[in-house]
């Protein structure tokens, strides 16, 4: 499934979608950035509640297909700008991380 399709799904909302055509391949949940870099796979949707600026660098380096902010977390404007500049797809979801993953699992 493409990131743009996920962004249109009920419960999900795009915050920055510079690369809407990226394919979501699997999912990784985590808030410790080094764990994410060490374990997330290329193309994964990364589900987290971290919304500070460093998530843009981690997402870029780990080459995930998108970052999904769970629990309705909203990033500040600087994170959105950086995500757009670095080609990071950023989506927010009102659901807890587990429910995000369950939903994803049925769609990808």
């Amino acid at each position: 499934m493409k990131v743009s399709e996920l962004a249109e799904t009920e419960g999900f909302r795009a915050i920055a979608l510079p690369e809407p055509g990226r394919e979501i391949e699997g999912c990784y949940i985590g808030d410790l950035l080094s764990w994410v870099m060490g374990r997330a796979r290329e193309g994964n949707a990364w589900v987290t509640i971290m919304s500070n600026i460093n998530i843009a660098a981690v997402a870029s380096l780990a080459d995930v297909s998108c970052v999904i902010l769970a629990e309705g977390v909203e990033p500040d404007a600087q994170v959105c700008e950086t995500a757009l500049a670095k080609g990071i797809n950023l989506i927010t979801a009102g659901l807890p991380a587990y429910e995000v993953a369950v939903k994803l699992s049925g769609m990808i």
Binding site: L32, L33, S34, G38, N52, N54
Partner: peptide
């Protein structure tokens, strides 16, 4: 609190 300091930095550098 920023999500760093998990004690994975050097191990990740070795791993990669």
């Amino acid at each position: 609190s920023l999500g760093f300091g998990a004690g994975m930095g050097l191990p990740n550098m070795k791993r990669y």
